[in-house]
Amino acid sequence: MRHEAPSTPGPPGSPILSIQRGHTRDIPTGLPTHSHPEPMLMSSAGATVLGSVGARDWLIPPGYGLWIPGGYEHGGAVLHHGELSILHLDTEHCPITWTEPTGVAVGPLLRELITHLLRIAPHDPSRRAGETLLFDLLTPLTTHDIQVAVPADPRVSVIAERLLAHPDDQRELTDWADEVHASVRTLSRLFPAETGLTFAAWRTQVRIHAAIQLLGRGTSVTATARAVGYRHPSAFITAFRRVTGHTPGTYNSADAVRP
């Protein structure tokens, strides 16, 4: 990422170690997995990033951010280039103590505060108040991650692999039963046992997971719905909201909040 110069350290007791901001076009498509002892806040004004933190995937579209506690391995991929900010924080002085990765909204005021803190001198009289307000504005959101459990039993793992590769596959368990040489009753029992979900619910999770990545690349809601197996966009929107708590437009870089 092409950064503006990192901010100079704040005065003693500042919760912010550094602020970096820049465009993602100069970083690799894949961000290597790494960890560091201090927590960080990644926020997007124009980029769309698919982050991998621990065993979860998070989509970070414009107008959103992700809190990553210290020690968590994280990496990811840039789905849509744009501006990104990263704050590294002092564990001892940071008022945020979340122990799990946490999504946050990054509205205009929070973006302007980050810009202000990036540009002012360490002992600027407005720094303390700016830092206090920044952390006051960080409010946890409903999680933006979709976890898809992959079954191990070979009779259902074959089905899972096909659907992960082709989420628009419309076949039901009666069709799959013939292909994998197992009864519908057996498959109906194995899916909850292996994934915790019925076949229909698991397939919906797969479709929404695939949809989030397409939306993050700028694919329209209608085209995304078709690509993941929904004939009618209204049915897709309903399923998407049920799984994520948000509308597809929240994840679409073309519809997301921009500076």
Rank of each mutant, 00 (worst) to 15 (best):
residue 1 M to H: 09
residue 2 R to D: 12
residue 3 H to R: 09
residue 3 H to Q: 11
residue 8 T to G: 07
residue 8 T to V: 09
residue 11 P to R: 13
residue 13 G to Q: 07
residue 14 S to H: 11
residue 15 P to S: 07
residue 15 P to V: 11
residue 19 I to V: 15
residue 23 H to W: 08
residue 26 D to A: 11
residue 27 I to H: 03
residue 28 P to E: 14
residue 29 T to L: 12
residue 30 G to M: 09
residue 32 P to M: 09
residue 32 P to W: 04
residue 32 P to I: 09
residue 35 S to C: 01
residue 36 H to M: 12
residue 49 V to W: 10
residue 49 V to Q: 04
residue 50 L to I: 04
residue 53 V to T: 11
residue 57 D to A: 04
residue 57 D to Q: 10
residue 57 D to I: 01
residue 62 P to W: 07
residue 63 G to T: 08
residue 64 Y to N: 02
residue 66 L to D: 05
residue 68 I to M: 06
residue 69 P to Y: 03
residue 72 Y to T: 01
residue 77 A to D: 07
residue 78 V to H: 01
residue 81 H to Q: 12
residue 82 G to N: 02
residue 83 E to D: 13
residue 85 S to D: 14
residue 86 I to A: 11
residue 87 L to R: 02
residue 87 L to S: 06
residue 90 D to I: 05
residue 90 D to F: 08
residue 91 T to D: 14
residue 92 E to T: 14
residue 98 W to Q: 08
residue 100 E to C: 00
residue 100 E to G: 00
residue 100 E to M: 04
residue 101 P to C: 09
residue 109 L to N: 06
residue 111 R to P: 00
residue 116 H to F: 11
residue 126 S to L: 09
residue 131 E to D: 04
residue 132 T to R: 14
residue 134 L to F: 15
residue 135 F to T: 08
residue 137 L to H: 03
residue 139 T to F: 01
residue 139 T to P: 01
residue 143 T to K: 01
residue 148 V to G: 02
residue 149 A to K: 04
residue 150 V to Q: 06
residue 150 V to H: 08
residue 156 V to I: 14
residue 158 V to M: 11
residue 158 V to K: 11
residue 160 A to L: 07
residue 160 A to D: 04
residue 160 A to K: 01
residue 161 E to S: 12
residue 163 L to W: 03
residue 167 P to C: 10
residue 168 D to G: 09
residue 170 Q to H: 11
residue 170 Q to M: 05
residue 177 A to W: 02
residue 184 V to P: 00
residue 185 R to Y: 06
residue 185 R to T: 13
residue 186 T to A: 14
residue 186 T to E: 12
residue 188 S to V: 02
residue 191 F to D: 02
residue 194 E to Q: 15
residue 195 T to M: 07
residue 195 T to G: 06
residue 197 L to R: 14
residue 199 F to H: 11
residue 199 F to Q: 05
residue 200 A to R: 15
residue 203 R to G: 04
residue 210 A to H: 06
residue 212 I to V: 15
residue 214 L to A: 05
residue 220 S to F: 02
residue 221 V to G: 02
residue 222 T to N: 13
residue 226 R to L: 13
residue 227 A to P: 03
residue 229 G to F: 05
residue 232 H to Y: 13
residue 232 H to N: 14
residue 235 A to P: 00
residue 237 I to Y: 03
residue 238 T to G: 02
residue 238 T to E: 14
residue 240 F to D: 03
residue 240 F to P: 08
residue 242 R to P: 00
residue 247 T to N: 12
residue 250 T to F: 15
residue 254 A to S: 12
